[in-house]
Amino acid sequence: MLPFRKGAWKWLAVAGMMMAILSGCEPIKTGVLNPKGPVAQQQYDLIVWSAVLMSIILIVVFVLFVVIMVRFRASKLSKDYEPPDEKGNTFLEIVWTAIPVLIVIAIGIPTVTTTFDLEKSPSPNKKPITIEATSAQWKWIFKYPEQGIETVNYVKIPANVPVRFKLSSHDAMNSFWVPELGGQEYTMADMPMTLWLEADKPGKFQGRGNNFTGRDFAKMVFTVEAKKQSDFDSWVAQIKKTAPKQSEKEYKKLLKPGTVGLQSYSSYPKSAEVKNPNMPGMNHGGMDKDEMKDMPGMDHSKKKKDDKKKDDMEDMPGMDHSKMKDDDMDSEKD
């Protein structure tokens, strides 16, 4: 039976693209196809729109292909049939150049508008919360700068509130992905970035590191729990009250390669704050202007393994940041 429920036509389009392998199967209700927030919803709409257009192309070509195969098989043709000697057909060729161009326009426009939309808060009138998500080999560390608490391998967010995830990495490049809330972005040691997500309703979602980082990469999963604002507040209060404080030493230990279970801390050391090591003042990677102002000057201490070099860096009198900015822009174009 085909699943004719609300939004089923969209699902059918996707299924059609998969060449009907799914017909009769339960529709998948996890991951990308199960958006639970405005960001994921926007991406879902784009995915469905492109899948519909692509399905049309697939169907046209498949039908043509089958018709031609059946109609012009040598065994079906009379013995003395000779294919005509034709070189091409300018009109037809213009047609099948123009149609893909139209389709590219039809996908391109929502692509560009959505690309710019995703740089902004999904709900600009609501006050956002900021959470710093840091990947390390092989765990996720979440810091709540406004609340002063820290969690490891799980994160709780208030539902219906836009969350500004500040992504960074301690070592290898990972990717922060919660498919049901929205698409991923990389976590990098040399360029912290911002990812906006929001959950419509309370619920639990699976999040994970999505860019290979070595041995225990497969275990870099975490849960995201969206709670009602009041529940969230009481959870924060409870962590504040019951969880231990995190010392500098403990934080350093946490960063060492290895896996750990769920952890909660009522505070974290100053050195754990996410900073932009190379380029404060850069406006790319989705960082917005006010956020930049918040960013204190350069501080390399977080990720310096070589202490001597760290000192060198901190002694650097007045690095010329404005220049760096241009270069980093260039590097992306190169």
Binding site: K309, D312, D315, D320, M324, D327, D330, S331, D334
Partner: peptide, 10 residues
């Protein structure tokens, strides 16, 4: 050219 200004204090 990308790295030219990244002198790292050197």
């Amino acid at each position: 050219l990308v790295l030219a200004d990244r002198t790292a204090g050197g």
